[in-house]
């Protein structure tokens, strides 16, 4: 109960950061507290964040230092296509963002990729789009010419 009051106070103070409690029984109410005080603002912010940049990635770690294999895969795929200029948000630095983006996208896992404010998918989808050629097409729609396409042209 003490920890509940502490976390409530913290929540009210910052309007945001409720850290995931370590005890299993903490999950239920911390999610509710977060929902009550911060979620509306964050959901609105997320709406702007995903539109601000052509390519937006929510990931664990940073492009320079991904902290999860799936996030790393997304970074590597984008790199292969020569996409270096994208907004990457590290959800490990912000537990509220970590949960908030799952709600926002209605997607249960991280990483999450957005093109022009549209949800593309997670690692599996980006990988399959890379494999079947859709990624080159989608990047083209964003005005980004894939480096793989350039390489192909040169080899011909």
């Amino acid at each position: 109960m003490n920890s509940l009051i502490r976390s409530t106070a913290r929540c009210l103070r910052s309007g945001a950061a409720v850290y995931p409690p370590r005890q299993a029984d903490g999950r239920v109410w911390s999610a509710s507290a977060r929902f009550l005080c911060a979620s509306a603002g964050l959901q609105k912010d997320l709406g702007q964040m995903v539109k601000k940049d052509k390519v937006v990635v929510f990931m664990k770690g940073t492009p320079a230092q991904p902290m999860c294999g799936f996030s790393n895969a997304v970074v590597q795929i984008l790199r292969m296509h020569g996409v270096d200029d994208y907004a990457a948000y590290n959800v490990l630095e912000d537990s509220e963002l970590r949960e908030g983006v799952k709600t926002f996208s209605n997607w249960p896992t991280i990483p999450q990729v957005y093109f022009s404010g549209e949800f593309v998918g997670g690692c599996d989808i980006l990988l399959q789009m890379h494999q079947n050629g859709d990624l080159v097409e989608e990047l083209k729609k964003l005005g980004i010419s894939s480096a793989l396409l350039e390489a192909e042209k040169e080899s011909k």
């Binding site: 509940l4 009051i5 409530t8 929540c11 009210l12 299993a24 029984d25 903490g26 999950r27 239920v28 109410w29 509710s32 507290a33 009550l36 005080c37």
Partner: peptide, 24 residues
């Protein structure tokens, strides 16, 4: 603000299936 606090405090940590699952 006071109402909000009361609301938050009412969200008591009730044991859920999740909790049972983990402890089991």
């Amino acid at each position: 603000m006071a109402t909000l606090l009361v609301l938050l405090l009412e969200v008591t940590p009730t044991p859920s299936r999740t909790v049972t699952g983990i402890s089991e």
